[in-house]
């Protein structure tokens, strides 16, 4: 992580205008709120959080699929160009995105082979015969057979379709893949196959990955670093072993203790959060988590905590952790 990061985002904000209620009053929802992060070459950043926390919006912003309302993103040292720009089109060869539902991402009327060749044709990469060879190689790379190229999406199983989507994303040899819940629609036995495949691909190709999921167990399996999001902000970020074994933010603690574990016996010291997931349209003042936080202080309702270093490369946004950290410094 010494070298300049592959991707750096600073102060990203993304607002959506929704119309709610009987009178369709417009409401502004901040899906992402001054979010900063970076990804090094070959590094996998896992982003976890519950529905509405802004993790998918973050993924779309970082992939350049939609522009932030404010903030900057640089990729390979240069600012991310605006959509539709010639440079933006070229950038598509270097950043790719993979979604949850492979059937929705594939065209039912084209064969798998035609769809994998499509990015090569759009970006005019290679001759016709070179492309055909490349498609075969890609199919094998993702664990399919060359003859799968002649099939249509409905002729493949869910796991095979997700492999085909991955092959298409890899066609242009991207530097970064943004995966949004790539294994959530798959059965357990197939999920493990695709996770292993992703781990192999990032190893072989030294490709950076942003892996977005609600499933902490899956994210841990694949990530070099993880970021926990709550209502549009990162509340904790760092090494997965640190964050998942010894979470500092009360929300990370609750999220991790809520994960059911087979064979661990009956639920023991679980922190069950009270209340519902918050509504992004009615963001609480101060720390967005304070109404559900079991340890909230008066200051939490007033002031939003900053994401600050908590040692060992970890960053946490919590007044309690900050206070404890300062306490530690004084005693040293």
């Amino acid at each position: 992580m010494m070298a300049a990061p592959l991707l750096r985002a600073e102060g990203l904000v993304r607002r959506y205008r929704l119309r709610q209620g009987v009178f369709r009053h417009p409401v502004t929802v901040k899906a992402v709120d001054s979010l900063s992060l970076s990804v090094a070459r070959g590094e996998t950043l896992g982003i976890v959080g519950e529905s509405g926390c802004g993790k998918s919006t973050t993924g779309r912003l970082l992939a350049g699929l939609e522009p932030p309302d404010s903030g900057t993103i640089s990729f390979g040292g240069e600012p991310l160009p605006a959509a539709g720009h010639a440079r933006w089109r070229r950038l598509r060869t270097r950043i790719q995105m993979v979604f949850q539902d492979p059937l929705g991402a594939l065209d039912r009327r084209l064969t798998i082979g035609e769809q994998i060749a499509e990015p090569l044709e759009i970006h005019r990469l290679g001759s016709k015969s070179e492309r055909a060879d490349r498609v075969k190689t890609l199919l094998v790379d993702v664990g399919l057979r060359p003859d799968h190229g002649a099939r249509y999406p409905h002729e493949l199983s869910g796991g095979q379709r997700q492999r085909a989507v991955l092959a298409r994303a890899l066609a242009t040899d991207p530097d970064l893949i943004v995966c949004d819940e790539p294994v959530s629609a798959l059965d357990v036995s197939i999920q493990a196959q695709v996770i292993n495949l992703l781990a192999d691909l990032k190893e072989q190709r030294r490709m950076a990955m942003i892996f977005i999921s609600h499933d902490l167990r899956v994210v841990r399996q694949i990530s070099d670093r993880i970021a926990v999001m709550y209502l549009g902000v990162i509340v904790e970020e760092g090494d997965p072993n640190l964050v998942l074994r010894d979470p500092l933010h009360p929300y990370s603690q609750a999220l991790i203790s809520a994960v059911p574990t087979p064979g661990a016996g009956r639920r023991r010291d679980r922190t069950v959060l009270q209340g519902d997931p918050p509504n992004p349209a009615a963001r609480p003042r101060g720390c967005a988590f304070h109404p559900r936080c079991p340890a909230a202080l008066p200051v939490c309702a007033q002031l939003a905590p900053e994401l600050t270093s908590a040692g060992e490369g970890r960053r946490v946004a919590c007044h309690l952790v900050e206070a404890a950290g300062e306490g530690r410094k004084e005693t040293v």
């Binding site: 036995s189 493990a192 292993n196 902490l216 399996q221 997965p240 994960v259 087979p262």
Partner: peptide
Amino acid sequence: LPSLETKPHRLVA
């Protein structure tokens, strides 16, 4: 099944 309890290891699919 990936787990939070054990060290990350390659899953046996």
